[in-house]
Amino acid sequence: MKPFTYERVATPAQAAAAVLRRPGAKFIAGGTNLLDLMKLQIEVPPHLVDVGRTGLDKIDPTPDGGLRIGALVTNTDLAADRRIRRDYGVLSRALVAGASGQLRNKATTAGNLLQRTRCPYFYDTNQPCNKRQPGTGCAGIGGVSRQLGVIGTSDACIATHPSDMAVAMRVLDAVVETIDAQGRTRAIPIAEFHRLPDNTPHIETSLTADELITGVKLPAPIGGTQMYRKVRDRASYAFALVSVAAIIQKDGTGRVAVGGIAPRPWRIEAAETELPLGAKAVTDRLLADAHPASDNAFKITLVERTLAAVVSKAKAA
């Protein structure tokens, strides 16, 4: 960890302004990811702006029948919220599939969206990594790649986004709301929030440097059977090999997003039209452009089989 300075702010606008004042400064909320990365000097912000007391910790109804989730609502509180459990079951299930009880108590909604990859090469500062140190190369390509991405990756980076929550947000068509130092607000559809790596894998979202997430808006509930199926090497406390978030309607139509395979939650709306034809048809379209690395081609089969499990469960429900 490099020495850094710290300040606490009272409002979202103050937070954005404070970060703009100090180049390289970062927001900190729960710190469950950032602090680990700072200890390993993967992140070396000179200044931290603590947004923990900006009051963004409420879940409120929106005029169109949805919910606005404050950026600081913890993963535990969000998963347990009665409205979330009733109307957005996929989100609650995704949250409890992630991390551990202790981490979920600290981790926030915005922080979860912004957590960084768990690629082992990103985590070892002796190794090249374009995401950690642009231009140094990618050790994951040709390296130990079992956990890494199969689609949406690039020649510069094959890391995945590790969030479970974000996969559910994607299938729910959530919208990320922000504010910047000038007080301007933005609403970013979740589909446009995480960027693909291309030649700039260190740029992971569409946020500007001084832009603070204030909340995430969920559209009005769409019903259906809502499932989150996470497959991993042990029963708990591990990142997904593959996860499937799905909302299946009684008529067999629905939505599907996949985690663990790409630099962002992977959803192609056109593929969902194949749902009545079964998991294979959906997977074939969803992963038509897949480029597996040496160790992870199995993820394509696993997506298909996990989706089949989900569809089968939905039929039984």
Binding site: K280, L302, S312
Partner: peptide
């Protein structure tokens, strides 16, 4: 680990 046998499991699809 499942990657070593997934292809050989009974067909379920």
């Amino acid at each position: 680990t499942l990657d070593k046998y997934l292809d050989h499991l009974p067909q379920v699809l």
